[in-house]
Amino acid sequence: PTPPYLKWAESLHSLLDDQDGIHLFRTFLKQEECADMLDFWFACSGFRKLEANEGNEEKKVKLAKAIYKKYILDNNGIVSRQIKPATKSFIKDCVMKLHIDPAMFDQAQTEIQTMMEENTYPLFLKSDIYLEYT
């Protein structure tokens, strides 16, 4: 069978589908001071998943606000800097008007994912951290 670390090199999704892969990638991102990008990506997925259980509107609002505050509000943050202004104002609008939608972070998540696919993920595959692990 293919060892997991070889699968990680196939695509970002195969890497993010494996606990050890995530852990190693996060260690690398932390070194590059951009671990927030990965946390934000997972937070968006987790937020979307909340939709399944009804009756937690209050929790959804709280969580949407928390994600907005931590990753988007601060324009100097690593995540905020990678997201398009239009996307940021869309999210801000949703939060301010309490239009909480399961897909409200989708566009921002896609932008961060593209950034990882084009930038940090290829760098990770060439990094000492990954090469030493293999």
């Binding site: 997972f42 937020f47 709280k62 969580l63 606000k65 931590k70």
Partner: peptide, 20 residues
Amino acid sequence: IDSEDDLLQECISSAMPKKK
């Protein structure tokens, strides 16, 4: 503030794959 962080952490963990 703590509970906001806890909520975020819980959300992030919920999206991660389970141990295989």
